[in-house]
Amino acid sequence: MKKFIFKTLLFLLPIPTIIICGLVMPTTPRASKSLLMASINKNSLLRNTQSPRVIFVGGSNTCFGLNSQTVYSKLGLNPINTGIHALIGIKYMIDNTVENIKKGDIVVLIPEYGHYYRNLDEGSEELMRIIFDVDFSNIKYLDIQQLFNIVSFLPKYALSKYKITEYINIQESDVYSVNSFNKYGDTYTHWGKKPERFIPFPTISGDFNYEVIKYFEKYNEEITKKGAVLLVSFPCYQASSFKNSINQIKKIEDELNHSKLNIIGTAKRYMMPDSMMFNTPYHLTKSGVEFRTALLIEDLKSRAK
């Protein structure tokens, strides 16, 4: 028996060795160009932008769906768009911003609809990559469940370090790159491009996750103590995809309206025509960005009144 265990471990030893080496190897040149790297700049914006500020927190619907320059011009607030990718998980997005919230900040939280179902609020592969590729010290923000979620992606991540294509012949994406963001954190390099064909999202699956609302309420308490204001809004969402999940979205809206949170706008208001979508049901073209930004500004103004 001991012989079996010893020989099995010896035989399998190269596997953990390769994985551990992969994990400790530096970030590859390809990963250094990824859009996740933008979180360094975005965190810097959070630390250094002067008050009065409006901070947008969400997934890619936030970075692909806002023109912060217009927000600045119309509201006179300094905008910070922290959105990068939904699969980082709304929980991490919140935890990553909380320590840099200052007195007088207006925080507009715009989770994507999937964040309210199952455990997508906790993040996925992108969360693992943001920790291992961008800033390992941010692992302090993760709870046990998030750690457990990202562990399953580690072998793939570690092995990716041995891929030759991570080091040579790297062609930087002009849409999904660290350089695709403007000075406020909006993705802007796709604004002049033609929309791409894509399939609408199917019905959102899984059970409603009530913990998400509770977490937002806790976040609200924390930033209220700091003298800031939290507003929760709805993501821009392609009409065809919206119709596929209309009951799930209604459930979200009902739960938010019954919570202690300050809600601005309605889900239907941010349902966008298919013609305004760029390459996913959450990403807008330039005209879509302007339309959505105008709606959000209206909602923020009416809230201020």
Partner: peptide, 23 residues
């Protein structure tokens, strides 16, 4: 024999690497 087993293991890991990450 070991080379043969390691080739199989490598093929499994390379496939995981090329996949979406989730099993």
């Amino acid at each position: 024999r070991y080379i043969f087993y390691y080739i199989i293991i490598s093929a499994i890991f390379i496939s995981i690497l090329l996949s979406t990450g989730k099993e």
